[in-house]
Nucleic acid binder design. Structure first.
Length: 519
RNA sequence: GCGGGAGUAGCUCAGUUGGUAGAGCAUCAGCCUUCCAAGCUGAGGGUCGCGGAUUCGAAUUCCGUCUCCCGCUCCA
């Protein structure tokens, strides 16, 4: 099957079996927003538990937090998001390229500056030692003309940016005949503002309302609570704060199913450290996080690190853990060395001390931060992409047969086992119900009696149920059932009272975590 | 946002120059009892993405709009 088809089929499969639906589908949907269905919600919760437990249970110096989506507007000034997420953009209609309008103008200014520089250098060579640069700049007509152009443009540009005058930004581009570097034409659209943060108002009357944003990342909720957690938890450096929560970005183009959504969920841990130890902790968390991913057993060859050359405004070092999706290698998790940027900014904007006092050395300082930031929806997509298999097999009579199977890690599977009476009579349903009623306290179970046993197995394969328990006529004689394994399709006959132990061995989170740490 | 493709039942799709909306699978009920889908009988389910125009009559033609997919672009 072609890769595109595979991805399409996966999306269709997710809908058909209750994993993911498009938001508000009966109203034609809402772009780049998705809902998790009955099976998707279970899988998502299990992923969260795996992450949360691996952070908070396995690391005694990492604690959890659940901060609000709404935050004081100053938060986003301090974090840099208000500035970084508000770009005036313009499109060239011929080349179809999109640019930041301010960047185009700045580039033009640089060109003018370069022209002057060239004149100066030329003159410098000609006159040798007797060259008076200041005099030359003030008197040469070509230089003064360009310098005047720069000065007037600079002034107008600064005013337009300050007033957020989009119309004038476009007019500048037209007036100074700035052309597209690709097409060379000046066929421009209007300048439009793309604000990547969703805004709303808090307060019931318009005149007192405060403009607030839906958080574009969960990290700031951790930073603003740094002191609260450190003091009340009596935390000593190094320590971490972990959080799972929704974040919102008004993406210009959101595509590729749940890979890039406008409303998404992050699993982030901010690790506070002494300055000077950031390299060591950066390497530590790179290793730990990669091990966490690989324990899911989705194929070693599907992972790689990608180190950033261009760094975001907050980062000193950054790497991504990338996974090979059906559409190529993409970022799933970011590990960033954020220095004291965030705490420093919040200290500055709030006027509150966000420091750590080391009683041994009598020093106070703003801690450095290494963060691990994982996209929950992305790792969900990663897991189902790797788990979705169409298998061809040969039947006993030589004809071919196929099945669609979700080979989800058993510990994450939405339904752990199905209890199936072989036939719908002879008391088999009653025995099955009894078994189910005992196991339901430990595992998410399903009971099914409709259709042939083979077809019921296939249905369970399609949602990734790792175990099918089949009750047959022998059960009433010796209290045994068959247990059928999803991946091998092999069956074993076991005692009913052994079921809990056998299944727990495969799906229990605590044993999975133990395995993770022992590796 | 731009270019290309698409939208008909839960899923995959057919639907001829405009003339009463179909199939397979799935679902539900019943029959049959069988350890790896596709046995038999019957039933339910669609204002053909939405809105408008043309027409005696529109799934089909035209306009607008929404959504999805691919490629740019943007973002991490």
């Amino acid at each position: 099957m072609a890769k595109e088809d595979l991805f399409k089929n996966l999306i269709a499969h997710c809908k058909e079996y209750g994993f993911i639906f498009q938001s508000s589908e009966i109203y034609d949907g809402l772009s780049a927003v998705y809902d998790y269905g009955q099976n998707g919600a279970e899988l998502k919760n299990n992923i969260k538990k795996y992450w949360w437990d691996s952070m908070v249970l396995l690391n005694e110096n990492v604690v959890g937090l659940d901060s609000a989506i709404f935050m004081h507007p100053k938060t986003w000034k301090a974090s840099g998001h208000v500035d970084a997420f508000n770009d005036p953009l313009i499109d060239n209609k011929d080349s179809k390229k999109r640019y930041r309008a301010d960047a185009l103008i700045e580039e033009y200014l640089e060109k003018l500056e370069a022209k002057i520089q060239k004149e100066v250098e030329k003159a410098g060579k000609r006159f040798g030692d007797s060259f008076d640069e200041k005099m030359f700049r003030e008197t040469n007509p070509r230089v003064t003309a360009n310098q005047e152009k720069i000065d007037t443009l600079n002034e107008r540009f600064a005013r337009a940016m300050n007033d957020n005058d989009l119309a004038d930004l476009k007019q500048i581009i037209l007036d100074y005949e700035i052309a597209c570097p690709v097409s060379g034409t000046r066929n421009w659209t209007d300048v439009r503002q793309f604000n990547l943060m969703f805004a709303t108002e808090m307060g019931s009357t318009a005149d007192t309302a405060l403009k607030i944003y839906l958080r574009p990342e969960t990290a700031q909720g951790i930073f603003v609570n740094y002191i609260n957690v450190q003091k009340t938890g009596r935390m000593k450096l190094p320590f971490g704060i972990a959080q799972i929560g929704k974040a919102f970005r008004n993406e210009i183009v959101a595509r590729q199913f749940i890979f890039r959504m406008r409303e998404f969920e992050q699993m982030e841990m901010q690790f506070f450290i002494k300055p000077g130890t950031e390299e060591q902790w950066f390497e530590h968390w790179k290793k730990v996080r990669m091990r966490w991913h690989k324990a899911l057993d989705l194929g070693e060859e599907n992972y790689r690190f990608y180190d950033h050359d261009k760094l975001a405004h907050y980062a000193a070092a950054a790497t991504d853990i990338e996974f090979k999706f059906p559409f190529g290698f993409r970022e799933v998790e970011g590990i960033h060395s954020r220095t004291d940027f965030d705490l420093g900014q919040h200290q500055k904007f709030s006027g509150k001390k966000l420091q750590y006092f080391n009683p041994e050395t009598n020093e106070s300082f703003v801690p450095y931060v290494v963060e691990t930031s994982l996209g929950l929806d992305r790792i969900f997509l990663q897991i189902i992409s790797a788990a979705y298999k169409v298998e061809e097999m040969e039947k006993e009579d030589g004809s071919t047969d196929s099945r669609v199977v979700f080979k989800l890690p058993p510990v994450l599977a939405p339904v752990k086992l199905a209890v199936l009476p072989l036939v719908k009579k002879d008391g088999l349903p009653e025995i099955s119900r009894k078994i189910m009623n005992e196991l339901k306290y430990y595992f998410n179970c399903q009971y099914e009696e409709k259709d042939s046993i083979g077809r019921r197995y296939r249905r369970q394969d399609a949602i990734g149920t790792p175990f099918c328990i089949t009750v047959d006529h022998q059960t009433s004689e010796d209290n045994t059932v068959t247990i059928r394994y999803r991946d091998s399709m092999k069956q074993e006959r076991v005692q009913v009272d052994k079921l809990k132990e056998i299944i727990a061995g495969h799906v229990d989170m605590s044993s999975f975590l133990r395995k993770l740490e022992s590796e």
